[in-house]
């Protein structure tokens, strides 16, 4: 007996160590990395082509019909728009690698500078909203799943489902308007615009996170209910373990994997949702900048911000996949 227990941890650790270096984990890393590179390339190329897909002359439409032709020509040249397409593409790629995203047509500032000024506010907002959404959704979904398992408490299920459907169906900017009205206009409790002290974060974060939280909680409940009906949960009950242990050890990780799989899209949507929420709350981030830049036809800025948002989405997707691979030992292998 002693010898077996003595050998165990060693072999276990050895196996685990080897597992990270080769086998499923390495395959997972290679495959997922490759996927990321391809997606990144598609993103970069699409944002490069964006300007060229616009019908007509983007510079002319940006400067307006009254601008003198000489100015348009000069601006076109400074943007390199008269070069052959492949050369522009190479310049664009080269610029990307050296951190040069071009110059804003309106403010004449380097796009990279505009982005680095605005990015922190957006990242802060999105991260906080992530945390709040998950912290609300997971415990609530688990609790509702346990309470309504196997068709119990139909009334509670209906109340929860309808609340979460309604909440999930309200787009973030409308929720923002509603919150502004209630907390700002009616009660005057919280600031409704700008980024200042901690209290200025409350409304933007709430309006960004409540919708996804409701939808996630709903998914979590459904997954929990279905996991609670799984054969292996019956096995766990046949082992006569305490209920709480069954829910937390056997049900939760499995329900979480499918919730994250389905909820990944919600989290990426949350990233994009910052565009609207920032406009409601005059939040000095990328989102408010991109909307105004589109209206001003400041294409280099739009291009740069689209790239950043796209990269953010890819990052979220990557995180989701890694978390899934960690939670579910099959997922790293299953996908092949």
């Amino acid at each position: 007996m002693t010898s077996t227990t003595g050998v165990h941890p060693a072999t276990g650790a050895g196996r685990r160590g080897a597992g990270v270096l080769d086998g499923p984990w390495a395959r997972f890393a290679v495959r997922r990395g490759g996927q990321l590179v391809v997606s990144m390339w598609v993103l970069v190329t699409a944002s490069f082509l964006m300007i060229h897909l616009i019908p007509g002359d983007p510079v002319r439409s940006a400067l307006g019909p009254t601008a003198p032709a000489s100015l348009v020509a000069a601006r076109r040249e400074s943007l390199g728009l008269d070069d052959p397409l492949w050369l522009q593409y190479l310049h664009f790629l080269g610029g990307l690698f050296s951190g040069d995203l071009g110059t804003s047509l309106t403010s004449r500032l380097p796009v990279s500078q505009v982005i680095s000024q605005r990015l922190p506010a957006t990242v802060q907002l999105a991260l906080l909203a992530f945390v709040v959404a998950l912290a609300l959704a997971v415990p609530l979904g688990v609790l509702m799943g346990v309470l309504t398992r196997g068709g119990r408490r139909r009334g509670g299920e209906l109340a929860f489902s309808s609340t979460s459907v309604v909440l999930g169906a309200i787009p973030e900017f409308l929720l923002g308007v509603g919150l502004v009205y209630l907390f700002g206009v009616q009660w005057g409790l919280l600031p409704v615009a700008g980024r200042g002290g901690p209290e200025s974060y409350v409304l933007p974060v709430l309006s960004l996170s409540l919708g996804p939280a409701a939808a996630l909680a709903r998914i979590m409940r459904v997954e929990m209910v279905s996991v609670l009906q799984a054969d292996y949960l019956r096995t766990a009950r046949a082992k006569r373990l305490p209920r709480r242990r069954i829910y937390l050890r056997d049900a939760l990780p499995n329900a979480l994997t499918s919730t994250i799989t389905l909820g990944g899209l919600l989290l990426t949507a949350l990233v994009a949702g910052t565009v609207l929420v920032e406009n409601v709350f005059a939040w000095p981030g990328l989102g408010s900048t991109i909307a105004s830049s589109i209206l001003l036809k400041d294409y280099p800025v739009v291009q740069g911000i689209v790239l950043v948002y796209g990269a953010g989405v890819l990052l979220v997707n990557l995180t989701v996949d890694v978390v899934l691979a960690l939670l579910d030992p099959r997922s790293a292998i299953r996908e092949s």
Partner: peptide, 9 residues
């Protein structure tokens, strides 16, 4: 993989 709003923009 990209959210609809981003594609729409």
């Amino acid at each position: 993989a990209f959210p609809g709003l981003l594609l729409a923009l």
